[in-house]
Write a protein that binds this DNA or RNA. Structure first.
Length: 794
RNA sequence: GGGUUCGUAGUGGAGCGGUUAACACGUCUGCCUUACACGCAGAAUAUCAGAGGUUCGAAUCCUCUCGAGCCCACCA
């Protein structure tokens, strides 16, 4: 007997059993079989390793549900599914929290604390994943902080170094003075703020007053040129001349098309480095470097202003300029500054020695790999190509952090030569000494990798690289599912790195999903207080309802607000499925498949079942879960429960009137529909499907090892005829509703004309409850009419 | 400024050349009909953003305008 209600206890029971029985195990032995032994086809998923923040958010729940639908669907379709799960562990947020708790520690100890901290967080997130019913094969779990993972990342970097892809060089990089580290362009965020635009007087070669406008007067000591637009009549006479800054430096005056005439006075200064355009201009005109800001964001090489923070120096310098009469005027101005996404500190440009990945030279190659991949939706590739076209310089892969993968290199401070580590994994603190070709002792690199260096080889890591045995079986992987917002990082770097290392695109298909917005349609954020926590939902709703919510939110690569309506609807579907199953249970007690006589409505619902199998399957193939589920709701809830089950009740309850064979047929059809329906929804709602399966069908140890339904007979004539019966029922129900009669009230007299009378007379009269029915056969299928006698007390 | 996605009932959203413009939530009406009232039945609600055009026919294709989201660039 089915329990009275569907409950979370049922879900937890199956989660346990699935774990214990390894229902989702990837069959490695089968995968390694030679082709001649017909191994099952492999379907491999390069699942995103979430950052170990300690808690899943709704975005995770949405996207990981998708991955799980795919894995379960493919398993039921005969694939040997390889679905590992990893963790992106290393990063600044963890360092911040660990430092807050333990204070400053030596690197080795600090890293150890970070590792311990991360293990706790992984445990929480993993429990949540299991509670969501996700079905990765946990035997292949990986963490980017593991020494084995380090070893592979380092090996990959050495391989790339040998190919000339990785190099160390001095370059202006985006620099966070708070983190004291270089950061990548992808880590920048915009901050809009109010600032002062200062008009400051420079001196021309003949004593002329030249006024420039700047928001960063503290950089005047780093001024290396003045500029104006070549079409600007006011300044044409200055071209090629020399000007003197308020600090007495002589700088050239250059005409350049990128100068905005309308901004300030149309005359400007170029510094090392106020912003990105300064960097561009410095390289364009081979200007000298004047580094006045150090790695901590403090002034240097500026005499009396040394060691002041940039903002303090700005105040002091403005005071000085004012006293000297060089500050002409100030006006308020709103400005957008680049800040570091993790600590929100305004970013500087600083010249320093960093390690780079050679992405600019490989832009064409990366695009080629990208084109070999099927992008779903297809416009997704444009996010990647647009990004590639806008890359200004190479990828800075080094970070001056501790909890990260150490870069496996040495460098020589004297001659700038570099060398690779000989033993992996490599850690600077334990590094062996190495003598440079110049005779100097080399320094082991203490910088760590950008976290995207770690995660950009996940397809290789899970495929067992560099071991060829598994690699050749599952690389390129079948699928990379990921968020649309990290195309320019994760997808881009993975295509670059995995592509360079294997000379193949890493996956056959990339599937992009959108984000979950708050119910108000805005981004979820702490400041707006509109965050929905999955954990809270899990206490109130069955997991199978939350998973349906994910399916319903599934328009690809599009953001959608979180919807409690969807969730409640999903929950009521579970209740519907449960209660209807109970009806099937009591209706089919002691049923043995015997001789049966299918009636019109039976053929109709069988036909609709098979239409649903056909459509549902097509939508699953196309990753269109919302369409799939909508088809199923329509079929199961409305066609099957609301109509079919009502139509056949009288056949079940009173076989003495309608015949045993008719009852048997109804019983058969009920089981048939239930059997196929729970299989279809098993990938979306695995728990309730399993419970029903185990109670009624149990052909295999789990429904998740069962075979996907095949499309059977779709009797289009039966479907068309039954539609007419449905119409008649609808008209009669309408009559009762309009005349405010109870649905179970008995109509005293009904007369109708319709085709196929014999076929549906018996099928429908049990539902509409008619005392006296007159049916007239008519060839006109369109014409269905009902006439009603005045009601008599019955 | 460039790219991209999109503007359809109160809300969320299908439909993408011919439909009475789906479905769900919400609203209104009736019904506790031997699985389910967390249900069933019925009803109302849409200048398909606006303006042109192509077509026998457009929510659907094209052009422009207006508006929104996301990504990118960006004023020193």
């Amino acid at each position: 007997m089915l329990a009275k209600d569907y409950s979370k206890e049922i879900e937890e029971k199956w989660q346990k059993i699935w774990q214990e029985n390894n229902v989702y195990a990837f069959d490695e032995a089968d995968a390694l079989k030679p082709k001649t032994e017909n191994p099952k086809p492999i379907y491999s998923i390069d699942t995103p390793p979430p950052f170990t923040s300690g808690e899943l958010h709704m975005g995770h729940v949405l996207s990981y549900s998708f991955f799980d639908f795919i894995a379960r669907y493919k398993r039921m379709n005969g694939f040997n599914v390889f679905y590992p799960q990893g963790w992106d562990t290393q990063g600044f947020p963890t360092e911040v929290k660990v430092e807050k708790k333990y204070g400053k520690l030596a690197p080795t100890e600090f890293r150890q604390k970070c590792v311990e901290w991360t293990y706790k967080f992984i445990a929480k997130m993993k429990a949540q994943m299991i509670e969501m019913g996700f079905s990765p094969d946990w035997r292949y779990e990986y963490r980017t902080m593991d020494s084995n993972y380090h070893r592979k990342v380092q090996f990959s970097l050495i391989e790339m170094y040998k190919k000339g892809e990785i190099y160390r060089a001095a370059y202006p990089v985006h620099w966070c003075p708070n983190c004291v580290s270089a950061i990548a362009k992808a880590e920048l965020e915009d901050l809009e703020r109010e600032t002062l635009l200062n008009y400051i007087s420079f001196t021309g070669h003949n004593g002329e007053q030249l006024i420039i406008a700047t928001t960063r007067p503290e950089l005047i000591p780093a001024c290396v040129a003045m500029m104006f637009n070549p079409t600007d009549e006011r300044y044409k006479h200055l071209k090629g001349k020399i000007a003197t800054t308020p600090f007495g430096d002589e700088v050239p005056i250059i005409a350049d098309k990128d100068v905005e005439k309308e901004f300030g006075t149309g005359l400007m200064m170029v510094c090392t480095f106020g912003d990105k355009m300064d960097v561009v201009w410095t390289h364009r005109y081979k200007l000298q470097f004047k580094n006045v800001i150090n790695q901590y964001g403090k002034m240097q090489n500026v005499g009396e202003f040394n060691n002041l923070k940039a903002e303090q120096a700005r105040i002091k310098i403005l005071e000085k300029l004012k006293t000297d009469g060089k500050l002409i005027k100030q006006e308020k101005k709103s400005q957008i500054v680049k800040i570091h996404d993790r600590c929100k500190t305004p970013v500087e440009f600083i010249t320093s020695m960093q390690w780079f990945g050679d992405i600019k030279a490989k832009a064409g190659k990366i695009k080629e790999f990208a084109k070999q991949i099927e992008w779903i939706p297809s416009f997704g590739i444009s996010y990647l190509t647009d990004w590639i076209d806008n890359v200004d310089w190479d990828w800075v892969i080094s970070r001056q952090r501790i909890f990260g993968t150490p870069l496996p290199f040495y460098y020589c401070e004297k001659c700038d030569r570099t060398a690779i580590a000989d033993e992996l994994p490599f850690y600077a603190e334990k590094a062996k000494s190495k003598i440079c070709l110049c005779g100097n002792e080399m320094k082991p690199e203490t910088s760590t990798c950008d976290c995207w260096v770690d995660s950009s080889i996940t397809p290789l890591i899970i495929a067992g690289w560099p071991n060829e045995k598994m690699l050749e079986k599952i690389y390129p992987l079948s699928l990379r599912p990921q968020g649309v917002e990290i195309v320019r990082t994760w997808a881009f770097y993975t295509i670059y790195r995995s592509g360079i290392l294997t000379n193949k695109a890493p996956w056959k298909t990339i599937l992009l999903n959108g984000n979950v917005l708050a119910p108000d349609g805005k981004k979820m954020s702490k400041s707006l207080g509109n965050i929905i926590s999955p954990q809270q939902l899990q206490t109130k709703y069955p997991v199978d309802a939350i998973r349906q919510w994910a399916a319903l939110s599934g328009a690809m690569a599009k953001d959608r607000p979180f919807s409690y309506e969807d969730l409640r609807y999903a929950k009521s579907f579970l209740i519907k499925l449960w209660n209807s199953t109970k009806l099937v249970e009591i209706s089919t007690e002691n049923y043995l498949e015997e001789e049966k006589k299918l009636r019109l409505v039976d053929k109709w619902i069988i036909g609709r079942m098979n239409e649903t199998i056909r459509d549902f399957t097509a939508h699953m193939e196309a990753f269109e879960y919302h369409y799939a589920m909508n088809k199923l709701y329509q079929f199961y809830w409305h066609d099957f429960c609301d109509n079919y089950l009502e139509y056949v009740k009288h056949r079940i309850y009173t076989p003495q009137i309608y015949g045993e064979k008719s009852k048997k047929a109804a019983q058969y059809v009920m089981k048939y529909v239930l059997y196929n329906t729970i299989k279809l929804i098993a990938p979306i709602t695995p728990h309730i499907s399993e419970e029903i399966w185990q109670k009624f069908f149990k052909e295999k140890e789990s429904i998740h090892r069962a075979h996907w339904p095949k499309i059977g007979i779709i009797d289009t004539n039966a479907i068309a005829s039954a539609q007419i019966a449905n119409e008649i029922v609808k008209i009669l129900r309408q009559y009762k509703a309009v005349n405010k009669k109870a649905m179970n009230s008995i109509l005293s007299f009904v007369k109708m004309r319709a085709p196929n009378i014999q076929d549906f007379e018996e099928d429908i009269c049990g539902v509409i409850k008619i005392q006296k029915l007159e049916i007239e056969k008519s060839n006109n299928i369109e014409l269905v009419c009902a006439e009603f006698a005045p009601e008599k007390s019955s």
